[in-house]
Amino acid sequence: MGVVTTRVLVVDDDPLVRSALQLMLGGQPDLEVVGEAADGVHGLRLARELRPDVVLMDIRMPRLDGLAATRELHGEPRPPRVIVLTTFDADEHVVEALGSGADGFLLKDTPPAQIVEAIRKVVADEPMLSPSVTRTLIRRLRAEPDESASSAATRAAEAEARLALLTDREHEVALAVGRGLSNAEIAAELYLSVPTVKAHVSRLFEKLTVTNRVQIAICVHDAGYMS
């Protein structure tokens, strides 16, 4: 049985970054760079034409930035996984991208081996954010100084209502995702097989109407299950 190849599209306005990613990923037997784009408009067109499995998406680009392009891609019937690229881990736009449906983010100076591993993880529906980063992102997504107490209470009630739709086991898996655990870690903790955990996570996406694990974690935190 041959190696299953993951098709990757690189969208970045810096030609040096595109070249570096092309060289880095081109040497992997299970990864193939199927196209490159220098802005969001071209990136969207190529994504629709080439149907990649993963898009590495820069944030700041001409014509259409990576945030807008990511939102459009996630409106597609079968969207690719999107990993946003950034120069700074404190970039507020990364938080916005994750909240809008991106599957994770990478710093542009991330070591090559970790970039390759991150692509493999999102394809396998594994979190590519450490628990500490996940908690930081959730805190920032929830940090709305102007939010009234009634608005916060409404959001909490909505999150609790969504979680109430879950079975007991799905609820346990949701809490584990909220802690930033991987599928393998959840399987070990709950004495389940990894395929069973993946099936539960897929049902969480459907029942909670979310598109990635960070959004599951946000729902869990909004409901008050995590500090």
Rank of each mutant, 00 (worst) to 15 (best):
S151I: 07
D146F: 15
L181Y: 12
V8G: 00
M61N: 01
H74I: 12
L204Y: 00
A47D: 00
T136Q: 13
L106I: 07
E126D: 10
L85T: 01
R162M: 01
A156T: 11
A174V: 12
R213Q: 15
A164T: 01
S227G: 11
T167K: 13
V33W: 02
P29E: 00
V33E: 03
R139T: 09
V54K: 13
G66I: 02
V122S: 04
A37Y: 04
G75H: 09
V95D: 01
S148G: 13
L46F: 08
P79H: 09
A199K: 14
T86W: 13
F105G: 00
G180D: 05
L73V: 09
Q215E: 12
L208W: 06
A184C: 05
D30M: 06
L31H: 04
A152V: 13
E160Q: 15
R48T: 10
K121D: 12
R179A: 04
A37P: 03
A69R: 07
V123L: 11
G104H: 07
T5H: 05
E147H: 10
E32Y: 10
P131S: 01
V133C: 05
E117G: 05
M61D: 01
T209H: 15
V220L: 05
Q114H: 08
A157V: 07
K108A: 07
I83G: 04
E72Y: 05
R63F: 07
A157C: 04
V4Q: 14
I59P: 04
S130M: 12
